[in-house]
Amino acid sequence: MRFVIIGSGRVGVRTARVLREEGHEATLVERDGDLTRRARADGFTVVRGDGSREGVLEEAGIESADGLGALTDDLNVNFTACLIGRHHGCRTVMRIDEEHREEIYRKYATEVDDVVHPERLGAMAAKNALLGGSIRAIADVAGGLQLVELTVTESAPVKGYTMGELELPADARLLAFGKADDELGLPTPDESVAVGDRLVVLAEFPALEDVRRLLIGEMPTRAVAGGERR
């Protein structure tokens, strides 16, 4: 697929690189001379100019692009670029800079198909790493509601019980279960829980701690070697 990425800073270039690695074609748009040179040295096609100008986006091939990633740190540029991208029939993804705006843009910006908040994603990854690999936040589904994957440890109280015997707090639901070396699937009542098995749970923030204690046990003093890598 073909993509136009606005902004060749840390977020834009990394996104373009991942797309390129997966066999897609990405053209960057960058206002700054140094960043333009650096991205070109890295082998990227970069159009130098303001990503909120239609002419610049046309030069970057917006007419034939499948998607537009507006990934600069300037919200006005990002939003305008999405408007133009939408006009040309692109899927549009906008980078935002502050937590509270995620909800606002999801609700009101009909021209924006999805929003990304890199700082929050980074914080989630850092938190997962700090917790030592046995609990992994997958997504904030809504304000106060989080989707997490937990890996059953040696000290987990739930170890040895079956799915049917598992009782989660009221504000939590088990969505998927996977044996240690198997793929995740829908949970069935007869399956028993062993070390290394994974459970995907949707829970309200206040219930998360109870879920963690039940499925993992007390905080390990040392991070599980290897941790979570995917």
């Binding site: 300037d74 919200l75 006005n76 939003f79 800079d97 705006r101 606002i104 910006a109």
Partner: peptide
């Protein structure tokens, strides 16, 4: 009005 950009 609710607006897009660096103010809300």
């Amino acid at each position: 009005h609710i607006v897009a950009g660096d103010v809300d």
